[in-house]
Every structure is written in C-alpha cells, then in structure tokens.
Design a binder for these strands. Structure first.
Length: 222
DNA sequence: CTTGCCGGGGT
DNA sequence: ACCCCGGCAAG
C-alpha cells in the first residue's frame, strides 16, 4: 500500500498558501488520489474513501439495509463487499493532470453532458429495485473478484469513449421555439457537479484550472 | 447558507 | 499569459 508518487512534488513545491478559507478549514491535505465509483453507469468521484463508501452505500446499495441490527456510522467494518464499487485512482500532479494548462482554458468543443446525465438517471432509477440488482452484482462479483490488493494496479472500467450526441440540434430547436438567443449574458447554471463540489475545498489542487480561477468549469460541462 | 462564474484586477 | 478574488445569480 505504498505509493510511489511523491506528495510534495520535488521540483516545485506547490505554492500552497491560501490565506482565505471559506467553507472548510483548509487543512492542506495534499492528496493525489481520488476515489471513483465503479458502479456500471455511475461516475461519481470522491476525494476520500469515506465519501465514496457513503455514496455507494446510499445510492447503489440502497438507502439502508434492513438487517437485524442497524449500525450505519462509525464501526463500518462491514462486508468488504463494497470494495468492488469504488476504486482508487491516482491523480498525478504533473504528467496527466486534471489541469493541462492550456487545453482546458477554452470551453470544450464537444461536451457530452447528456451522456453523463443519462448515466446518472439510470443509476438512480436502478436504486428502486436494489434487491434485484444486488443479486446480479453479487454474482458478477464472484465472477471476477476485483479487489483492492496492494500490489495490483487498478483496472479501469472502460466507459464508452465518446458517444457524441446530437445536442446541437437540440439547441437549435430550442432557439427556434423560444426565439431567444442561447447566448445569455450569464451562463445558465447546469446541474452537473463541478470540481469544487466533487473534490471539495480541501482538495482544490485537484480542480481544473478554470475552477481554480473561478471561471467556467471546463472539465464537467453542463 | 453554498455553488458557479463574470468582470476586473494583479504579477 | 497566468493567477486571484469581489460580488453576484441561482439554488
């Protein structure tokens, strides 16, 4: 469980000194790893293992388990079953960083938020029959037993490269029907979670450049 | 209250 | 060009 990448970045100590701390007490946890939800459709990303476990439990394993006893907080030595649902992902600070300096400065030419949204919806509706799903998953789980062994590199679940949908047409239609220019003075607030919400204030170094500068997020379109 | 980001700074 | 933040809209 020892990761090679250095936390402090040898050649250039990250200038970590935010004089202002808004919501949370910036405790300078220079983390270089995030936790992604591995649920078939879901793409949730959390900054801590606690958060992702919470997410998985709430969203995918059902709001609550009807067991003999009930314990949800603290002693969650629960079944290591949910290890399957998230995966640790290293976020290198320099080689393949979220912020590529320039490329993400401009708005992405092809956003596919539609896809993400769809996935989210799928996951949500799936929550209804959790019981049914659990069975299926359990089966699959035993099939190829993914787990977080210390030496094994995480296998990334491949999620469709880029579906690229006809969102433009949608826009055009909208324009026609409303007779209003889509170019509003202020960008309409999308409901996708952006870097700030995903990583939290204490992991600002993981945000995309735009978010760091309080500009329009370029990683998560809306 | 929080989140996203425009406009307007500074280096 | 890069970085930061006041202040505002929307929730």
């Amino acid at each position: 469980m020892c990761y090679m990448w250095v936390i402090g970045d040898p050649s250039g100590p990250p200038k970590i000194e935010q004089k202002h701390l808004l919501t949370s007490r910036s405790k300078r946890a220079n983390a270089a790893v995030v936790f992604k939800c591995a649920w078939p459709g879901c793409l949730e990303i959390k900054a801590t293992v606690a958060l992702i476990e919470e997410h998985v439990r709430q969203l995918h394993l059902g709001p609550k388990k009807s067991n003999g006893y009930d314990n949800e907080e603290e002693n969650d030595i629960s079944d290591h079953e949910e290890e399957f649902y998230y995966q640790e992902v290293a976020v290198d600070h320099m080689s393949s960083p979220p912020t590529m300096s320039h490329r993400d400065m401009a708005r992405p030419p092809h956003e596919d938020p539609e896809y993400q949204k769809q996935l989210r919806l799928e996951a949500t509706s799936a929550t209804v029959n959790t019981e049914n799903m659990m069975a299926g998953i359990r089966e699959r789980n035993t099939a190829f037993t993914i787990s977080q062994s210390p030496g094994t590199p995480i296998k990334h679940i491949k999620l469709s490269p880029r579906p690229l949908q006809a969102y433009q047409q949608n826009m055009g239609l909208l324009t026609v029907s409303t007779g209003k220019m889509p170019s509003s003075p202020r960008r309409i607030r999308g409901e996708t979670k952006k870097c700030r919400k995903v990583y939290g204030m204490e992991h600002r170094d993981l945000w995309c450049t735009q978010c760091k500068w309080k500009k329009a997020c370029s990683r998560f379109g809306d």
